[in-house]
């Protein structure tokens, strides 16, 4: 049912919320409640956006301007703060690393997660619920509990750099993916399989030719969640990507930059603002998917 829930919310998310005939909108007191809504919304937006705008504008200041006049408009306007960062290859390398890690993590999570969710959803075999239970306990193991031994394990396996980041991230992304996808795959009608088998298609053929295309909305949803988790990840990069800033991902790059230029606050602001842009663009493009994924996961 999660599948249908996700699907319906995806197609008509808000339209059903408040049909135009809403009665109390005409009743007395409705105006007051509406004003309350607008006031709360304005305060919420100000508190949310205020600091972000301050950060972006702060990136245009000189250090002196920031300390003498932190609330005014920047004067002079230092476009070069942003320009210098963009002219340096470190920022671009880090962005590329983050992108590479996030794309490969997402691909791995979605591929292996869907493959595992398929038999857990649609096969009948002994031990199915047991295996599913093993994956669900994964939600109880946060990365922080496992991170010290994981670090040693990766060293023993000879993994380092970005691959050492991608492989465990896939592993930690699997439980959520399987938990979301299993009910989704289960909701597809069983007749599909019967018809396919009748036509002599094997299970594997069914998986590739029919299930994957049909499961695409669910796969996009879990993929988006995995991508965000990887893009924002900090703990593993902190342990694994030491040394050259060019080999780091963006979140670790920010804190490293912050350590290197501790006194140049405005440069840190510019760097952080630039690092924020890809995440915000992705968020605006995928907002519907993210919300559906999260609410679907919670309802599922």
């Amino acid at each position: 049912m999660t599948a249908t829930a996700t699907a319906t919310t995806a197609s008509a998310p808000h339209k059903s919320v408040a049909p135009p005939h809403r009665r109390y909108a005409r009743g007395e007191g409705a105006g007051r409640a509406n004003w309350l809504s607008i006031c709360v919304a304005l305060v919420g937006v100000a508190v949310t956006l205020g600091p972000i705008i301050y950060l972006v504008v702060g990136g245009l200041r000189t250090q002196q301007d920031l300390s003498t006049n932190p609330t005014g408009l920047p004067s002079p306007v230092m476009w070069s703060n942003y320009g210098d960062i963009l002219a340096n290859d470190v920022f671009w390398r880090q962005a590329a690393n983050s992108l590479l890690v996030a794309v490969l993590t997402t691909a791995g999570v979605v591929l292996f997660g869907t493959m595992a969710a398929y038999p857990l959803a649609r096969y009948r075999f002994k031990g199915r619920e047991g295996i599913f239970m093993i994956f669900t306990t994964g939600l109880m193991f946060p990365l922080s509990v496992a991170v010290l031994p994981l670090y040693l394990l990766l060293k023993d396996l000879g993994l380092s750099g970005l691959p050492a980041l991608i492989v465990p991230q896939i592993a930690f992304g699997l439980p959520m993916t399987i938990i979301i996808l299993r009910p989704f795959l289960r909701a597809l009608p069983m007749e599909l399989e019967e018809a396919a088998f009748m036509d002599g298609v094997s299970r594997i053929g069914f998986f590739w030719r029919m299930l994957l295309p049909l499961a695409r909305p669910g796969m996009v949803t879990v993929g988006v969640l995995a991508f965000i988790a990887s893009w924002n990840a900090y703990l593993l990069p902190l342990l694994l990507l030491t040394g050259d800033p060019r080999g780091m991902t963006l979140p670790l790059g920010i804190t490293t930059f912050q350590g290197q230029y501790a006194s140049a606050t405005t440069l840190i602001m510019a760097y952080t603002s630039l690092a924020m842009i890809p995440a915000l663009v992705f968020f605006l493009l995928m907002e519907r998917r993210i919300v559906d994924g999260l609410t679907g996961a919670v309802k599922g």
Binding site: F135, A171, F172
Partner: peptide
């Protein structure tokens, strides 16, 4: 088929999540 579908996920999960814990 089960080994094929479940194998990679289980191997990754047991190696990099369960074993470290």
């Amino acid at each position: 088929e089960l080994a094929l579908f479940l194998g990679p996920a289980l191997a990754l999960f047991l190696t990099f999540v369960v074993y470290p814990v």
